[in-house]
Design a protein around this nucleic acid. Structure first.
Lengths: 363, 363
DNA sequence: TTGTATGCGTTATCAA
DNA sequence: TTGATAACGCATACAA
């Protein structure tokens, strides 16, 4: 029955056409519910649909893509999947994409620029319709801008902002977050507070610190420079833990007592907790610790971590909205300007912080 | 210069052919280093390659796929990315795939069967060359077998084994792992050991328990049934934490003292630690806790978790090897039988276990 | 050593 | 209401 000897189990549109007795064109129209399907006789429709089902016909996506120039896929470039920050974001992206029947092509840059570029090339070759980049530092630069801009591919970054007007961005309001964190400790009565600032190269570091300073100013709280340390730059996402430990050790060695520690992020906070515990200090009894991000573990740790939550999953979804907007705009030849979303952080109070001990309120 | 009015920035092979003055065929041969490229004049090669580069030519992957029937992509179906078990596996898969210039199409089933099926359909429509499924329970069944088997698509599962001979599998040697865990506690001198068994529906539960029992038998250690509880079935991957807590509470309420707790997996262990701590028991001073898996957080927790490590990342890589073997076999019309890998678990001793306290050795 | 022609599976444009 | 035809971009068999 098949013309081209049963080379494979794949049943093509022509097969459906032949066995149903109609032309491929008609089959296409019917099966896609194309506008012209309005004029197709119901009986015909039924026959075609039935034989399609009977033969188990499935459209060949590649052929369709070639023809329509739409791949129905989106590149999802993660700067490093071993950063727990990424997982909820990825989930959010995947979920939103799924709703639109788009498929994510997963790329993990391992924090390496060349890997990023290689993947970018692969993704472009595959004619992704849009690109989402999850990255909290700016190894993404000119190249991305150039290639993406030229090809008019909607792109969004999650976790950092790019200069220029070609790439949308979704970031948490770091300043508000920093503010929230310090405010919480302050309201608990803490006045001797140590700070571990983020690495210079990270996008979040500056605004987060700004928020902290602003709150301090507005509350008349003076940040003791001797109690401020900064994480070294590093590409390893899990270095936050070790460096958090080291920074805390450093803080501890100064013999300047503090009752609370504001860590740059959750990983740093875990490192701090480890160091404090090793030094014989109990969290939160003798020292409160607050993180930032609300990575999945924060809930599971004992004590569970008080932190400033980024709505990571929602941010992933938001990114998808943004790029889909772009995709549709392109389709309809509309212009669309990029979006710069700033999501609201949320203080999540758990077990690692508590009111300053009365006995410890020595000045 | 271009024939078809500059509709887009995309430069096609024909463009390269025209501007270089050769035919598309020649261009194709040169650019792909096809066998026939041997016979192409070096000068020609050079000219073509140069103009290709100058024009910024990039092959259209979709066209190539359509022609060659090879998508160079692999479906990666994760049963639930919010399970920390998955992240390292995903990393391993991604990395291995990257080495082969294959691209992962990411699908997260959210532990839902219908979602799994929908994704499977999407993946098949895209003519993935192989499928990797990361799942620790068997929501994967007949359907997968049928579709995958018929189409002759190499498939591998990580985390569970399927009946039949169409799907390869990579699982840790759970029995050895269970053995390792109990042996460790036993060697530390623990004799009053509580157990939290896994949910019935999980693949790992039975063999892991078997390993435990076997060690107990061989060591002449008697497992006290009163100190054995079982996690309830649940589809939520993070339920392990809450249920671990509940199970531990249950254990605690029996007022039967135990000096160590062997948890089904790391998440359960974290739940147990939380419950023990809440009950005023210190880990490991008053109760040792051991987990299973070595999820990323186990290292970051305080105390860090002693656990039986699954080589998750390596398992991801192994799965890629297996399916690539299958892909190549198909290509060369070779037959290849499926693989059933069983990787070696490794005891990772950290802070959550220690020798039984002398003072606590009351019988 | 290189060019011509054909087809992969779809879909869109026309004509019937 | 339906069918013939062309084209998407590439790679191969064959001809030159």
């Amino acid at each position: 029955m098949k013309r081209h000897g049963s080379k494979d189990a794949t049943v093509t549109m022509r097969d459906v056409a032949e066995t149903s007795g109609f032309s491929p064109a008609t089959v296409s129209i019917v099966l896609n519910n194309a506008p012209l399907a309005r004029y197709i006789a119901p009986a015909t429709k039924k026959r075609i649909e039935e034989t399609a089902k009977k033969l188990g016909y499935r459209p060949n996506a590649m052929a369709r893509f070639l023809r329509s120039n739409r791949s129905h896929s989106v590149g999802v470039m993660i700067f490093d999947i071993s950063d727990p920050f990424c997982t909820p974001v990825l989930r959010g992206i995947e979920n939103a994409l799924y709703q639109c029947s788009y498929v994510p092509i997963f790329a993990d840059a391992h924090n390496q620029r060349n890997r990023f570029e290689r993947y970018l090339e692969m993704l472009l070759d595959r004619h992704i319709e849009a690109l989402i980049v999850v990255a909290n530092w700016l190894f993404v630069d000119i190249h991305l801008l150039a290639d993406i801009g030229k090809r008019n591919i909607p792109a969004a970054t999650i976790g950092c902002e790019l200069p220029g007007d070609t790439v949308s961005s979704i970031v948490v309001d770091n300043e508000a977050g920093g503010r929230l964190a310090l405010e919480h400790l302050y309201q608990l009565g803490h006045r001797k507070i140590a700070f571990i600032r983020g690495p210079k190269m990270l996008f979040d570091t500056a605004p987060r610190w700004r928020g902290i300073q602003k709150f301090a100013n507005s509350a008349g709280f003076e940040i003791d420079p001797a109690l401020v340390v900064q994480l070294p730059d590093s590409l390893d996402p899990n270095s936050g833990f070790e460096n958090g430990q080291r920074c805390t050790d450093e803080l501890l060695q100064k013999k300047k007592r503090f009752t609370a520690l504001l860590a740059f992020d959750d990983l740093t906070a875990f490192g701090a907790i480890r160091a404090l515990t090793k030094a014989g200090l109990k969290v939160p009894e003798q020292c409160s610790v607050i993180g930032f991000d609300d990575v999945p573990f924060s809930l599971l740790a004992t004590p569970s971590l008080t932190t400033v939550r980024q709505p990571l999953e929602a941010m992933g979804g938001l990114a998808v909205n943004v790029i889909m907007e772009g995709v549709n705009a392109n389709l309809e030849k509309r212009e669309v300007s990029i979006a710069r979303h700033r999501t609201n952080p949320e203080l999540v109070i758990r077990e690692s912080t508590r009111a300053v001990a009365l006995s410890g309120a020595d000045d």
